[in-house]
Design a binder for these strands. Structure first.
Lengths: 350, 350
DNA sequence: CTGAAAGCGCTTACAG
DNA sequence: CTGAAAGCGCTTACAG
């Protein structure tokens, strides 16, 4: 049968016939295998171009060990984050003729494992990239290990040595940003934690704690609020920290959306930024430079991280030669804009 | 050969053997075909569950006429927009055991057609969803028509009857929002156009023009600026419209990112919103409610539009019975927040 | 360096 | 209502 498409599908047999070789030789050329005379190879390549031959991925997948499919798993992510991630993954995929399949999953659902297994069972992806918080979903990791599928975790928290991962040094990034606040003269620095299911949240909090410690500033637990990375959670935290007499002079939020919430609530309360309150965020989302004053934040190379994750899988590098899971740690950078200034009453330092 | 996976793949033969029927019967059950005794069907289903059998999509695709793959094409979209789109598509895909493959394309590239053909040739997707500006990329549409692949255009502009489409009434939405501004007393209303390659841009401008016309307000071309949907382009337009003596008292931007740029530039120039300047946007992106004052804007049901697009393809409804391309027009809604107020000097109306 | 045979796991006709 | 045969378009072992 020919499928109901406008154009007749051209197959490996057509190419083989066109240049008088066996399909095995065409296969060798398509897969870049050795042991083909340069002359023969060229002849095949010419026919491939002339006929616009594209190997059928289903046939390849069924006959061989590769599906040319890379999967990306995510759960309720920030739009800007997934978007950057996908760009990095797509770029790397295209280099090797791979395609990107995106699958939303609910980490908390009792049937995650089943959903993931069904997905792999049907699609046989050659590898999976897990984005936070899926990177830390034990049920998913277990299912993947059971199936023996290669995968890379992006910015995992717990159990970091369990599998290949790509990350930045979240702890140090938060540490460095806190240092900026301290260096500007702030000693009353509040902190908004990120979603507890994301591995990076804990790291960022540790960086904050460590920086305060190096200045011998005590942590005030009433200046630390539990956020969930959403703007709404940031609003709640902002009210908790700002709606009191002894409010901090600076707040460091674990991501930009929450930092933006702080800025909005501060404006409503009549606080001027940065004069009355300095604010710092994390992510450098597009909005960070769209607000006024522009938000100081930490930029992670998200697309590059995704590229590296895809590369680990496609280059079959997710395990080192000694069997240890690969680790790629990329550089972050501090983006200092206008939302940070010295505290108004330097006299209150102490 | 067994592929190098931790678990042996279980196939249609295993199920057939387990319940003593032929593989054809199992196939019938898996595809919901008629002509299977209820009792037999149940027996098969039980074995399927017991063995956790998942039909191999590659085999299905190779043997049959369907790949169970839906493709989504995009070109440099706004993150929030693709994110919503993907959610809608994924939801519909999962209902039918489909999977979503995302492919970035460069509409302007001379080899777009080739890229698209290669993609289809390799993956044989059962349908494609085109997002703006790909919805209006003639080279892509031509390639798809040539290959005979089903596709749905989201919010297309030119040549709207060429193929199935899903849209909102962009013209009327912009018209209604402009009416809000007029109703608040504004007569000096500026407009920032969207990217000319997006079909919706022209529609939104028409809505603005039409609303002004109904109030017999003349269009001032120096109050209309050409934007490109990016925050940066919005900044440039804002300077053009606000950096002059006779500036408008309200500005309607074709999307939120540009509206946000206007708000930022206005703040910098010392203009208070909404007292000195009213602002309206389009999209209701997350940022719209994160700014202060919160932005009035138009909300489109993006995820629902995507769901409808996927549904058109999976339900094989992209062509009506008479062969005409299907059209799904969804409802928008006006989200009125704090960025619009009556102009300060009502005396200047005229 | 090259090829003939078998088989991947399904669906499509077709037969009964 | 059910099944045996053929074939989808490749890759895998093997042989030479």
């Amino acid at each position: 049968m020919t499928r109901e498409r406008g154009v007749a599908t051209i197959t490996i047999y057509d190419v083989a016939r066109a240049c008088g070789v066996s399909i095995k030789t065409v296969s060798r050329v398509m897969n870049g295998e050795p042991n083909v005379r340069p002359q023969t190879r060229q002849r095949v390549l010419d026919s491939v171009n002339a006929l616009s031959y594209r190997p059928n991925l289903s046939a390849r997948s069924l006959a061989g060990a590769r599906s040319y499919l890379l999967g990306m798993l995510f759960d309720n992510p920030s739009p800007a984050y997934v978007s950057d991630l996908q760009q990095g993954l797509s770029t790397r995929c295209r280099q090797d003729g791979y395609h990107l399949v995106v699958e939303p999953v609910d980490c908390e659902a009792p049937d995650v494992a089943e959903v993931v297994e069904a997905m792999i069972g049907a699609l046989k992806m050659d590898g999976l990239v897990l984005t936070p918080p899926v990177s830390d979903a034990a049920a998913v990791l277990d299912a993947l290990d059971r199936l023996g599928v290669a995968y890379v975790r992006i910015a995992p928290g717990a159990d970091p040595h369990r599998a290949a991962r790509v990350e930045i040094d979240d702890r140090r990034a938060a540490h460095d940003m806190t240092l900026q606040l301290l260096g500007s003269g702030h000693r009353h620095i509040g902190f908004i934690k990120g979603h507890p299911a994301h591995g990076a949240s804990q790291m960022r909090y540790q960086g904050y704690v460590q920086a305060l410690g190096s200045y011998e500033v005590k942590i005030r637990s009433d200046w630390v609020a539990q956020g969930y990375f959403s703007f709404e959670s940031g609003v709640a935290c902002a009210h908790a920290l700002l709606g009191r007499e002894d409010r901090p002079t600076a707040i460091f939020a674990s991501n930009d959306d929450m930092a933006l919430a702080i800025m909005m609530v501060a404006s409503r309360l009549g606080l001027k930024i940065p004069d009355d309150l300095s604010v710092a965020g994390f992510d450098d989302t597009p909005s960070a430079k769209m607000v006024w004053p522009a938000l100081s934040t930490v930029r992670q190379p998200i697309a590059d991280m995704a590229y590296a994750a895809a590369d680990l899988i496609l280059s079959r590098l997710s395990r080192e030669e000694d069997g240890a899971p690969a680790v790629r740690r990329l550089d972050f950078s501090l983006i200092l804009r206008d939302s940070i200034a010295a505290p108004r009453s330097l006299g209150s330092i102490g």
